[in-house]
Amino acid sequence: MDDQNPLDASDIAAAFDWWRDAGVDLDFSDDATDWLAAAAPAEAAPEPAVAVRKSAPEQAAAPAEKIALLGPQPPTTLEAFREFWLTAPGLDAIGPRGRIAPWGAASPDLMFLVTDPEEQDSDKLLSGPQGRLLSRIIAAMGFEEDAVYLASALPRHTPMADGATLAQSGLGEVLLHHVGLVAPRRIVAFGANLPPLLGHNAAQGPHSLREINHDGRSIPILVAEGLESMMAMPRLKARFWHRWLDWTAD
């Protein structure tokens, strides 16, 4: 580093990292800029003007409308919703075959939400390692399994699912309708990609979602890391448990 070049490579890399962490990774301008060009001497004569034909500005694309997956007559009972969940053709690109239904009774003290079924699920939602972890969590909380409700935001195992994209596809409306039919006292959501499906602004961070307001009813919610992440990182189990104790103490 010298007087002519006050910034070295590490300084520039740190600046880029700072902006990238802040969510700014692109720079937009109406005119092209050569960032690597050397500065022109002060006494250099101006280059002759060149006429540039500017193209007409492109019309901004209209935002995609959410798809009404529930149809003109949404299910009005949990039994009707389960039938809809297992048979409605538009819920995913594969079709009804192989979907996994939610389980539990209406108006539970606690509703558990996960993003999708486990890969090996066939007859029951979360029938593998994640389900065994959830069973231990339910027991530690002091609940019987038949006193809670378990649902997934997606009808089948979907790796790398993006909550914001799924919400735009209409599945957010389906999930909120499902929650309304269940009418739980409280909700625990395992998965940081679930809040956008519940109408939460993703820019605010998943843990800032504290309640769901739907159809004139407010339901407290605790958003935690996914069960798969908890199995991979035991410290997340301890963090969830502390957050659960603080949440229920209120």
Score class of each variant (00 low, 15 high):
201 N>I: 14
105 A>E: 15
243 R>K: 02
109 D>S: 09
119 E>C: 11
92 D>L: 06
74 P>F: 07
220 P>V: 02
148 V>M: 02
178 H>C: 05
51 A>E: 04
39 A>D: 13
114 V>Y: 00
167 A>E: 06
109 D>T: 04
38 A>Y: 04
173 E>N: 12
212 I>R: 09
23 G>E: 09
126 L>M: 15
205 G>S: 08
173 E>T: 02
102 P>A: 07
57 P>Y: 12
62 A>Y: 11
202 A>G: 09
213 N>W: 06
76 T>Y: 01
233 M>A: 15
196 P>A: 10
231 M>Y: 03
196 P>V: 15
160 M>K: 04
206 P>W: 01
168 Q>A: 09
215 D>L: 08
36 L>Q: 14
136 R>D: 14
110 L>C: 10
103 W>C: 07
210 R>L: 00
245 L>R: 11
172 G>D: 07
237 K>M: 12
8 D>Y: 07
125 L>F: 03
76 T>P: 03
109 D>A: 04
120 Q>I: 13
98 G>Y: 14
5 N>S: 10
238 A>K: 10
39 A>G: 10
110 L>H: 00
161 A>S: 08
97 R>Y: 13
127 S>V: 04
214 H>Y: 06
209 L>I: 14
132 R>W: 07
242 H>Q: 10
132 R>K: 11
178 H>V: 00
33 T>A: 14
33 T>S: 14
73 Q>E: 09
73 Q>T: 03
130 Q>H: 04
99 R>N: 11
190 F>M: 04
58 E>P: 07
68 A>W: 14
112 F>P: 05
173 E>H: 11
84 F>A: 06
204 Q>E: 09
221 I>M: 11
116 D>K: 13
19 W>E: 15
57 P>Q: 07
28 F>E: 12
223 V>H: 02
95 G>N: 13
48 P>K: 02
52 V>C: 12
158 T>M: 12
53 R>S: 09
80 A>E: 15
118 E>S: 05
55 S>Y: 03
39 A>P: 11
154 L>F: 10
31 D>I: 04
190 F>N: 04
225 E>S: 13
198 L>E: 03
207 H>E: 12
150 L>R: 01
93 A>Y: 11
83 E>G: 04
16 F>K: 12
79 E>A: 10
94 I>L: 14
37 A>G: 07
